[in-house]
Design a protein around this nucleic acid. Structure first.
Length: 208
DNA sequence: TCCCTGTATCGCGGCGCTTT
DNA sequence: AAAGCGCCGCGATACAGGGA
């Protein structure tokens, strides 16, 4: 179906918003994002797009807009390399993530792949990162980068204990503070020489 | 007349605060 | 802890106006 400039703008906005935030926009988000002066205009054009089969709407729920096909967002299969602890660290053999192999895969949007040179996926076990909206059973996508900044959520290998854990990273002098995002859990503080950061979380996937 | 857009408003539901 | 209340976000719609 031919789209007006406004309809194309709305489609692009919905797609970008959904990719960036992981959930679809509201009518008012679209109104503001597309510089449209009225929600009725958004609704009118959404109806046209829905009639044309370009999106689906669930009117009984908020943010019930779903694009039926994505223009830019193909998916690529990424290996899921077993569980990573968001709780008490898991005992593991010393590992190099790049050498691991897996039969299990998840589909990750291509633009995420394109933004990072190397990525892998891990199943999350535990709830130490619940305040960062990372819950037990989620799949996190890690970028295997050494460029880590304070506040990044990282996969940290504790060398002395042969344990790997998912925590928020803070460098404090010669020590590293691995901060859980759970009010009931204490941070792990280790010498910088005793911890190896394997990568940082760049994407979160959750099934219902 | 039809298509498209804008203004204003309503009702629903979630959430947070206060009170009991 | 539960109930009551008000606020706010949100979707929906009635109605009016402009332009082809």
């Amino acid at each position: 179906m031919p789209l007006t400039d406004k309809q194309q703008l709305m489609m692009d906005f919905i797609e970008t918003y959904t990719i960036d935030r992981g959930f679809p926009p509201t009518i008012r988000d679209i109104q503001e994002g597309c510089k449209i002066s009225s929600t009725s205009v958004v609704d009118y054009n959404l109806r046209i797009l829905e009639r044309g089969g370009l999106l689906k709407r669930s009117r009984e729920i908020s943010r019930g807009i779903e694009l039926t096909r994505r223009k830019r967002s193909d998916s690529i299969q990424v290996p899921v390399l077993g569980p990573i602890s968001a709780g008490n660290p898991l005992m593991v053999a010393p590992i190099d993530i790049r050498t691991l192999d897996s039969d299990d895969h998840v589909a990750v949007p291509e633009e995420i792949i394109n933004q990072h040179r190397e990525i892998v996926a891990f199943n999350v076990k535990g709830q130490s990162m619940i305040n960062a909206h990372i819950d037990d059973g989620d799949v996190v996508i890690l970028s295997l980068t050494r460029e880590i900044a304070d506040g990044d959520i990282v996969a940290a290998w504790l060398k002395t204990d042969d344990e790997i854990t998912l925590k928020r990273y803070f460098k404090e002098g010669d020590q590293i503070r691995l901060q859980p995002e759970n009010d009931e859990m204490e941070p792990i503080i280790v010498n910088a020489a005793d911890v190896e950061i394997h990568g940082k979380v760049v994407y979160l996937m959750r099934g219902y």
